[in-house]
Amino acid sequence: MSRLRIDKTLKLYVNGKFIRSESGRVLAVPTGEGRVVNVAMGSKKDLRNAVLAARKAQGGWCGKTAYNRGQILYRLAEMLDGRADALPTTKADAEAAVDRLVHYAGWADKITQVLSTLNPVSQTYVNYSRVRALGVVVAAPDPKDGLLGMVEAIGAATVMGNGLILLTDAAQGELAAALTEALHTSDFPSGVVNVFFGDQAELLGHASRHDDVDALYLAGAAPAAVVKGLEEENALVLRRVLKVASAAKPADPLQLQVLSEVQTVWMSAYESAGGGSAY
């Protein structure tokens, strides 16, 4: 007599905890081996809680040293690599995802050096432009990009110091759940990366109407009508929407800067510097 497989419940990962959706919505997804995974479908209220958690965690995350953030990203690579054979994806996808995290781990204490500038202004001020985190990013990776797509969004958003809510497609629940387990055992502080399963389009709609989200990250070729609707919503609060074609290559520095703010500081360089006033 064959052994009865156990089903698995896939829970949302919010604020460092595995939770069911407050909505009670569950999607039963057959895996084809006489087994079912029950995917908790994230709701608007779950998203609201996740934004709160991400906002709260983000300050601490971007306040960590860049060196430390790099080590934490590297730790996530280690955790993912340790379970690479068990990940419900191709070997190539798993390896690319691990390598991508290594790439971002290395960026953490360098990207600000590449993007920040010391500006030679014609007044007695030390003028510098530094890149700083945007805040909370909501990302919808392209399901076609597999684990690499999810990891690319995590790397790009967090390396710039942002908190993240990753909206994964319910059909990829097991893969995303495996990622949350790696995240949970990495050293990422609770709330910095939150992972949802559900209907990406529905959740993006909720995110677009939430006033405490700083950017949307859309990967892949979403239908034009969907992008138009989202951009119209986000125009009302001048929220930026970063569109990424695919995760095949890591974000380049100019794409990464879209996930940050450039802050220019004119620091008076001499004692009792004048106000620059001609009045």
Binding site: P120, Q123, S129, R132, T264, V265, G276
Partner: peptide, 22 residues
């Protein structure tokens, strides 16, 4: 200065502009 949520911060000055300054 670094805690202010604004794109340009003038420290002991105001309304200064320069082509080299974003």
């Amino acid at each position: 200065a670094h805690r202010l949520n604004a794109g340009v911060i003038w420290v002991n000055g105001y309304n200064m502009f320069d082509p080299a300054s974003p």
